[in-house]
């Protein structure tokens, strides 16, 4: 009996890793495929209860006229309204038109956005995004920043801006404009686009200097 037992004694053997390896090797490509290497962040926006057009800003105590800054996005450009008056078109833009007209007249943003939606609907996402970005690139964000920077110097306490837009303009344009109006850059004014987009935000101590950091949605 004792001998039998001795015979059954086995020397320690390695664990059979093959099934485990199979599992791991299948799991890793699956997870790699599902991982999105993009970080998501958020933009804070307020919309007063009831969807009214005004922001929840308190009235200034002094006699200074309230700014009530509003940017209206259209397919022709940006209209800026400050202190109740519509800003005159910038030099080089047609009179009676938007305060800041398109930078690239050869692009019709409305048509591009429409085309982009059609491409997306037909499943061509890559081309759809390209056309969308082409449409977005027609706008003159640099001049928008320059104008807002001038206004900010006159009204340093103001941080709210009401954004309105034509019905068909895409959400991407709204977020792009919010990016431009949120922070002050190193300079107050830029002459060319390269310098403008390469600019770093201006800092005040540990925080970024705010241009109009509280965007509110308004109804056109």
């Amino acid at each position: 009996m004792a001998r039998r037992k001795r015979e059954e004694v086995k020397l320690p053997q390695d664990i059979d890793l093959a099934p485990m390896m199979n599992l791991v090797i299948i799991l890793i490509p699956m997870l790699l495929l599902s991982v999105v290497f993009m970080e998501v962040s958020v933009i804070n926006v307020t919309m007063p209860l009831g969807g009214a057009t005004t922001s929840d800003r308190t009235e200034p105590e002094d006699d200074k006229q309230p700014l009530n800054l509003a940017i209206s996005m259209t397919a022709q450009g940006f209209y800026i309204t400050a202190a109740g008056t519509k800003m005159q078109p910038m030099p080089g833009c047609p009179t009676g038109g938007p305060s800041i007209c398109l930078e690239d007249d050869s692009i019709d943003p409305a048509a591009r956005f429409e085309e982009s939606r059609r491409l997306y609907a037909s499943g061509d996402k890559i081309r759809g995004e390209e056309v969308l970005l082409e449409g977005l690139s027609a706008y003159n964000y640099r001049e928008l920043y320059n104008r807002l920077s001038t206004i900010k110097n006159e009204f340093p306490e103001e941080t709210t801006v009401t954004l309105t837009a034509d019905a068909e303009l895409p959400f991407a344009l709204t977020t792009r404009v919010m990016d431009v109006v949120r922070f002050r850059l190193e300079e107050d004014s830029y002459d060319n686009n390269e310098d403008f987009w390469a600019a770093k935000p201006r800092t005040e101590g540990d925080t970024y200097s705010i241009l109009f950091g509280d965007p509110a949605f308004g109804v056109l």
Partner: peptide, 16 residues
């Protein structure tokens, strides 16, 4: 009445 729009984090220069 407080909204956050989800966006893909990117750099300012890449927008231009």
């Amino acid at each position: 009445n407080q909204f956050r729009f989800a966006v893909i984090k990117s750099t300012f220069s890449s927008l231009g």
